[in-house]
Nucleic acid binder design. Structure first.
Lengths: 235, 235
DNA sequence: AGTAAAATCTGACAAATGTCAGTATCAAGA
DNA sequence: TCTTGATACTGACATTTGTCAGATTTTACT
């Protein structure tokens, strides 16, 4: 977690995929000046459960997980966010303490936009307000979706789905099959909501059915069609 | 689902607990005129998965469940809403089809506020916009919370928690112990994310431990302290 | 490159939960 | 009020998943 050369919001490719695209030149310049950019190494906290929010976090480059500790002390990963996403809306807007943590899963550079300037722009710019509402609403929809999947699907389906979620969040290598993911088996288990052993066993099944191959920690999705079908997704 | 005498928003006790409290007299009058009020009988749909939203729904009186069908055809109840709550924000704001259904669990009178007038007020009134964001954010937070609870807690804890959720949503009779809930055991199972038999078994356990009593479908919470402790809630 | 710590993987077993079948009870509607 | 279909409940059993122990491999760091 180090300070470093601050990026310019004006020319930032990440800004244009967020609600900040709704702002005028002056507002962007002001945010660019007031933001705090930091480098987060893998596994370092961007924010943690129980802390009070100080603003929203715009991911300039990298990936984070949004996760939460269960009563039993085990982690559950609720979602991922990457380059061009903003995290931390909900807690700031609800005016509460974080009930989730945000942790870098890769070395990432992330900008904190302070509350005060965020709220001012939301108040003054209805398009930005609507953009924020749109984004939170999407999050709520996918989170609701996930509740049903986690409670009503067997582990095999959930592991297949986790692979697809990882593919969405991190993408594939140039070969078109290798997951660009730094996640451990334990982290995959935290997506699925199960024990690491169960994930490993299911991945072994998939290997023996020639749906995936593995090479150490990395996974190749060699039969996407079948995985999608196993994941049993509708919508 | 019948039309009936339309309530007046101006004097409506439900309005003041929603984002509509942020509006001026003229705007309230306009909404009062443009809304459509309906009576929904138990188990009738306010809206259904797959439909396109036509506005937001303000619950004038009654209770609804927000639920979703799993791939296996079983229902999962995500949340409840009652008198003075508004439902349907997220889908409208995300500009998508409903991915959940809203079903009356009691005879309820509910007002539809059309999209057009909702969006106009959100655009023109920053306080209302922020109020809406606040409400959605709260929903997102409780939904995230629920993911962790559903995946990492054993059934006994989840059933205890479901009883507390029902108490929050429906309240207690004058005796201070009887749940004012029309829910069947199957619906409770849909909150917990399990089979009805498992719920019944757990309730029988609770009975034999003198934590609850039952009388047909109704349940009395005679030892709240113990139930809270079993539910194992933090935050 | 070498080493220590961490992560992956396998098997055996235990525990939790789901499923099925059947009976008893309740509640909504004629 | 009566009746009938739905709901609640119980027990036995199958299945899934979690847990524990231990061997192997990989990764991270010096």
């Amino acid at each position: 977690m180090h300070a470093f050369k601050q990026p310019e919001c004006n020319s930032c490719g990440s800004r244009v995929s967020t609600c900040l695209i709704e702002l005028g030149t002056n507002q962007v310049a002001e945010i660019s000046q007031q933001k705090h950019s930091q480098l987060f190494t893998r596994n370092s906290y961007v924010f943690a459960e129980g802390q009070y929010p100080r603003g929203i976090y715009c991911i300039h480059k990298g990936h984070v997980k949004i996760s939460k500790m269960g009563a039993d002390g085990r982690e559950h990963i609720i979602s991922f966010a990457g380059t061009g996403n903003i995290v931390g809306y909900a807690t700031l807007l609800a005016a509460e303490k974080y009930n989730v943590s945000c942790i870098a899963v890769q070395d990432s550079s992330i900008c904190l936009i302070p509350s005060e300037i965020f709220f001012r722009n939301v108040r003054e710019n209805p398009s930005m307000a609507l953009h924020v509402m749109h984004d939170i609403s999407q999050e709520l929809r996918t989170t609701s979706q996930r509740i049903v999947e986690l409670t009503h699907k067997p582990i095999r389906e959930r592991v297949a789905e986790a692979l697809l979620i990882i593919k969405e969040a991190f993408g594939l290598d140039a070969d078109g099959v290798t997951l660009r993911s730094p996640l451990t088996r334990e982290e995959i288990a935290s997506i699925v909501g199960t024990a690491p052993e169960s994930v490993i066993r299911t991945l072994s099944e998939f290997k023996s059915e020639n749906l995936i191959t593995t090479n150490g920690r990395t996974i190749q999705l060699v039969n996407m069609r079948a995985l999608v079908s196993i994941a049993n997704i509708r919508d």
